[in-house]
Design a protein around this nucleic acid. Structure first.
Lengths: 209, 209, 209, 209
DNA sequence: CATGAATGAGAATTCATTCAT
DNA sequence: CATGAATGAATTCTCATTCAT
């Protein structure tokens, strides 16, 4: 999997944002850009509308309110993570290999959309409790799939059968998340994707049977 | 890198003067309670002042602005974490044991102050980029001490010498942080401290030589 | 002053054409229902359109703007009041009897359409100055007929010849209007029509020669 | 009672509005002027604040919201009507004389504050249901006092003992209100106060025993 | 030191109206 | 005739901070 392909889809210029897409997607994509460039608290609806090339009022034909835009951003983008992870789960490979693919996919997608990485790791976390809870609901879907990998691995004796699933999940997701956040906070100045094998190795050591 | 330099930044200058005054502490403590009870975005300066039993204007005799209150909250409370971790580091025990004590201390302190756990794990993360960056500076001091444990462990062949220190640190801190956040989000409904041995075991397996 | 001039203003021109079409009436009737059920300020054009079973844009094929709908509602409904009052005036009965029939007719029509009573007594009065002035123009036609009853009565020595016509008209209309508004505000919970004789008696005592 | 004295109190120039009054009253008085001059729907909070000589935010130290300003306007101004009517009721005169004084007082107060007359008779009636209901509560106090006059008159055999109190009240208030509204709608172009004796005479004829 | 009344900048959202189809 | 997606202007209220007392 080559993360550069994602790069082109996400960052293919503003023109792409405005053309041949339903307005809904136009607005979601505009929101990512505006939030990344201006910060969560400076991402006014009017700015998002302008970037999306629609009138302010048009936003409200597609979203209930500003909150709804933000949650939709997360849901839409996270959707790709989930879809990819489902494909990975359906492959006939070891649990360890699935974990490796998962980490790689996660890193790939965010390294391929730097603005999205800023939005998910930093900006969206400034949202209020309500929004964060709903974002968490979306995240749960992803974590359920991670749990499936862990369970499969334990059943196949690849992972320690005595492992506490919840803690293992928190270690895996916490490590991935912390790694990405640190990378974003360091202005993406080193290559994230190349860290994937090491992260995988570290996590595998911790979980191996 | 010498963590004492950070220490002096924290406690140096006028802050030290103010800390000896009861009102400074009154206000910081009031802030924790108000933020925990009302949420970050509903924690107005006037509410904090009322809870602290002072006038709104008085706040500004002790803090430069609201941001300063929030950072001070983190600094003050994190200070105990750092002090304890320094004591742990000075003990004559293995690196693994130090790691265990660190995790236990971290869990202990937050399990002993539920409001603080809400503030550090959920509410303070809603602050803006500027504040979060400054909170991170405070956090760095803590992470520097964690790095010392890791380095000691690698030097003593307790931990894998080929380990990437940064990744290991991210795994350790990410796992601890994720574990606590999950616990807070689940309304503290299970015992956090009793998870410490399992978390330690998991992390040790990942880092062991 | 000839009230027929008002009549022609109402029914002249394109309005007459439109009134023959079912949609015009559909929309006016929908407006009454929507305003009564939602209140003046919650009676959006889109709601009226939906209730009338037409598209928003269609409204503007039959009405110049929203104001025009509201004025038309009053005009259309008031038209029946005026028509009935004209029939009453043409009867060969005393002025006192005409007054009685007028009050009865007024009460009858509104008691027979509770939604309309809400719209005319409460909701339409929330409209802005411009609309209320134009509604008043419609009302003038009705008041001109009332004046005719008063003048006839004075000429026939049924009513006090020294009476100030304007004040008498204000007493008659003010009393009728206040009586109805009080009834509407009391949720139509008593019988309005049965109050007619008493209102008539009261007013007659005041005006009798 | 000389209505000119009221005139000076009410229209004593803008300076009076801004000086030596608590901010609450400043704002209420400014609201009357702004609503009368701009119309209900063009009376923005910022305009009221500017006219009152305070900052927008200051408004909210004295009023819960804009609605609260409007209701306060009515309550404050209506308060004078009620107070005067209470004084009238305490006088040792006939019920008929009390009614005369009431009408005179009502006309006097509004003729002495033309802007207030516009606000109460036209503009405030454009407010929404909620506000109008609360305005009605204030009005009820006034109507209760009117009822007292009517009851006294009936007990003393000045008024018809068989009269329906509610209808009589509606006739009296309806006539007064309609008379004033007509006067306001005619741009105050004739003298309202001089109509008082005729109105009194008309109403008395209707209610006399 | 302490007070707290006053400040004023800043943004989400609604809805009447248009016009390309 | 009819549609309905798109428009965009317009306004209340909050709250961190100040400063006269």
């Amino acid at each position: 999997m080559n993360h550069h392909s994602y790069f082109h889809i996400f960052l293919g210029g503003e023109d792409l944002v405005k053309k041949d897409k339903p307005k809904y997607k136009q607005i979601v994509d505009a929101a990512v850009i505006v939030i990344a460039e201006n910060g969560y608290h400076q991402a006014q609806v009017s700015k998002i509308a302008r970037k999306a090339g629609v009138a302010d009022g048009t936003i409200y034909l597609y979203f209930k309110n500003k909150e709804d835009i933000l949650i939709s951003v997360f849901r839409e983008k996270m959707g790709v993570f989930v879809e990819n992870l489902e494909k990975i789960l359906s492959q006939k490979v070891t649990a360890s290999e699935k974990l490796r693919l998962m980490i790689e996919n996660h890193f790939d997608l965010l390294a391929g959309d730097l603005k999205l990485s800023i939005v998910t790791q930093l900006e969206l976390r400034q949202s209020n409790y309500e929004i964060r809870m709903r974002i968490n609901d979306v995240l749960k879907e992803y974590l359920v799939l991670l749990d499936k990998i862990l369970i499969t691995g334990m059943e196949d004796n690849e992972f320690d059968r005595n492992m506490d699933i919840r803690l293992a999940r928190q270690m895996v997701f916490g490590t991935i998340d912390e790694t990405i956040t640190t990378w974003v906070m360091n202005d993406h100045k080193y290559d994230l994707v190349s860290l994937a094998p090491k992260v995988h190795h570290l996590l595998m050591k911790g979980m191996r049977a």
